[in-house]
Simulated scan of single mutants.
Amino acid sequence: MTTSTLPTDAGLLVLRVGVGATMAAHGTQKLFGWFDGGGLDGTDRFFTASGYPSGKFFPVLAGLSETLGGIGLILGLFTPLAAAAILGVMLNAMSVKWGAGFFLPKGIEYEVVLATAAGGLALTGAGGFAFDRFLGLRDYKLAYGVGAIVLAFVAAGITLLIRN
């Protein structure tokens, strides 16, 4: 059963593009230093200071998750996995900033909004204006979204167990 309508599809497109572009840009800051980002070296220093093992693995993982997850959301391509990538990174970001309060500039409100949007998109699917419809995901099933959210929490949990 599909409940897709033109207004719903348009709303999901706007949400996907907004969250996806934000996350893709943020990922390119980590990977390439674009948009005044730290690049891999700066991101590695930040991650190491935040308790992650030194090396490029976690900066590359976070950067790719944000960049590819963001592009996936923009295109509506493999939306459950794209949303899981964003949600997993945001769960880790919240754990790094935990204890600094809720509100910006040091709090977690930004990460909570992005994580909530990613979780919502995982549950709803991409809508009609998306490449997923060509992959047979037009009639989206709640199990896809729940599976994506579980995947994000498991991946984030494993990453956090590795963090000092």
Score class of each variant (00 low, 15 high):
Gly147Trp: 05
Glu111Ile: 09
Leu6Gly: 03
Leu81Gly: 03
His26Met: 05
Ala118Glu: 08
Ile108Cys: 11
Gly33Glu: 00
Leu15Asn: 01
Leu68Cys: 13
Gly69Lys: 08
Ala115Asn: 11
Leu68Glu: 10
Gly18His: 04
Tyr52Glu: 04
Leu114Thr: 11
Gly20Ile: 07
Ala100Thr: 12
Ser50Pro: 09
Met94Asn: 00
Ala24Asn: 08
Val146Asp: 08
Ala84Trp: 03
Thr3His: 08
Arg45Gly: 02
Gly69Cys: 12
Arg16Met: 06
Ala93Arg: 04
Gly55Ile: 11
Asp139His: 13
Phe103Asn: 14
Ser65Met: 07
Leu121Gly: 12
Gly11Glu: 12
Ile74Lys: 03
Phe58Asn: 03
Pro59Ser: 06
Met1Cys: 01
Gly125Gln: 05
Val89Asp: 03
Phe153Asn: 07
Phe153Glu: 08
Leu61Gln: 07
Gly69Thr: 03
Ile158Ser: 09
Met23Cys: 14
Ser95Ile: 09
Asp9Arg: 00
Ala118Pro: 11
Ala118Asn: 11
Gly128Arg: 05
Leu87Met: 14
Asp36Val: 00
Gly27Glu: 02
Asp44Ile: 00
Ala49Lys: 15
Ala82Gln: 00
Leu161Lys: 15
Pro80Val: 06
Pro53Glu: 13
Ala155Leu: 15
Phe78Asp: 01
Arg163Gln: 02
Phe134Lys: 07
Gly119Phe: 04
Leu12Ile: 14
Met94His: 01
Thr43Gln: 10
Leu137Gly: 03
Leu75Ser: 10
Gly157Lys: 04
Asn92Asp: 02
Gln29Asp: 02
Gly128Tyr: 10
Gly107Arg: 07
Asp132Ala: 12
Glu66His: 10
Gly145Cys: 09
Ile71Asn: 02
Ala93Val: 15
Ile158Phe: 14
Leu12Asp: 04
Leu91Val: 13
Tyr140Ile: 09
Leu81Thr: 11
Ala126Cys: 12
Ala62Ile: 08
Glu109Arg: 10
Gly27Lys: 00
Gly101Met: 12
Ala83Phe: 09
Thr79Ile: 09
Leu137Gln: 08
Phe35Ser: 00
Leu31Met: 04
